[in-house]
Nucleic acid binder design. Sequence first.
RNA 1: GCGCCCAUGGCUCAGCUGGAUAGAGCGUCGGACUACGAAUCCGGAUGUCGCAGGUUCGAAUCCUGCUGGGCGCGCCA
Length: 554
Amino acid sequence: MKNRIVAILEKALAACRRQGLLTAAEAPVIEVELTKDPAHGDYATNLAMILASREKKNPRLLAGMLSEAIADTEGILERIEIAGPGFMNFSIRTEVWVKELTAVHAQRERYGMMDFGRGKKVQVEFVSANPTGPLHIGHARGAVVGDVLANLLTAAGYAVSREYYINDAGNQMRNLGRSLWYRYREQMGQSVEFPDGCYRGDYMKDLAARVIAADGGAWLASEEEAVITAFTDYAAGAILEGIKQDLQAFGVIFDCYFSERDLYRDNRVGRLLAELQEKGFVYREGETLWFKTTAFGDDKDRVVVRQNGEPTYFAADIAYHANKYQRGFDRVIDVWGADHHGYIPRLYAGIQALDRSPEDLKIVLVQLVNLLRDGKPVAMSTRSGEFVTLREVVDEVGRDAARYNFMMRRSDSHLDFDLELAKKQSNENPVYYVQYAHARICSILRMAQERGYRAPTDGEAALRRLKLSEEIDLIKAVTRFPEVMEGSVKALEPHRLTFYLNDLAALLHSYYNKNKVLSEDQAMSEARLYLVESVRIVLQNALKLLGVSTPERM
RNA sequence: GCGCCCAUGGCUCAGCUGGAUAGAGCGUCGGACUACGAAUCCGGAUGUCGCAGGUUCGAAUCCUGCUGGGCGCGCCA
């Protein structure tokens, strides 16, 4: 609908320019928005005020001129009003709103889906937690953000791949193997002192027990270095397997798990560094290799190969991103914890040295979750083993409530997650408000079937009965869905969906309480069935994108 | 010290990239079930959009400077 107004305005604008009524060199971008106040009609544009400054003319006069030039060939406009400093307010005819619903019914589960992605390959990389322990509640937020972003991009017509980067090549991995080694010895009856940096959670005890169950004390006889290497692989593999299962229970399924070790396997890191050195972005200082990130706006240059000859994490990350583009992704989205923000300029420098545009990389920052229990902060640390796992959250709060909760704030704002509150208040959780609206409609549909009522199939005649202001408001909300989708995808802001859903559910509940859908008047009932069914379709489509279920009964 | 993010009713947060009288939820006060489901609805109260300037027809939104909070500044990952 918005686009139709824009199109009408474009024609009017062009007409005015042809007639020499407008003289400025370039035509402005036309912006049309939904009005907040019904007194301002349905849509409004500030076009005349934008023109006013360019043309040096009175905005209200310009608005009048544009209004004269408008040719409403489709007959969708009830009236145009000029208001305030020069707004043009458009009121859409009621029948036109009602007719919009036919698109919802025609497209059903495709309603709101778009194709502007044009099949371009996009990769969303998220979670990417080191396999040193189970995922905890902090990872859960990133998991949902990444997953829903991927859903949104898919819905916009992109070819999306979900990827998990496994940082399995650093010192942390070695610590993991060593931690298991100490636990193992402890359980074999030796007295051990755990060095700093060890992972001490219960899951390590379980792993040690599994090793003992399989091999007994056989490892005690082996040389320590060899044991640690073997234990590292074993622990990382087992933990990663657990992570995959936890993610699956949370409704998150990756297309690809990419191992950092693979980057070293055929010397991709080394070859990449050589290439960058050739291009002049890498220089040597003694044994150390530096990347000239300052050439791309970073504060200082960064080391890519240490004095001891080992490449840094950063070096591997450049190689990793080079690899992403080599795999044909036109656009790469990384979802990171906000504590990594200082790393952003570095990575942008990296991809630009590879001749990629900064446009090809988008980093979405997710603020860490502030975990509370009864209002008091809970300290979390993977190493000490004190944390609430993703699995526990899913089991206790439920998948739907957990996912919806994480989607209720912009990803870059802090999020308090109170465990007791989430559990205790599960019945008052906003997710149920939305799901209840869906279940309610399903209930009406069941009742309608019993009475032998059917929503009209093409139904334009029958739909003329929908003319209450609550009905038009509901239709407006329903048909706004594609616009919400588009904005949400383009801004990479999935939280907009939950706010929209809340609005839509509120209108539905309000309408339900005020007006009976099913009555003695069959034609009226059927028209209203058509309306609530369209609400249901949109609720379902949006909830599906969030990975939240749509119960027919609750 | 330098950099990034944040500051909006009592609390938690939106505010569609500069629009008209700043909105929700929770909480609070008062109402609505012989009803298609009360996990719902209806109504009331609550604001110097951190402070001070600036940009313009117009600022919660953009710029500058303060104040207060979070995070980051490794040849860790």
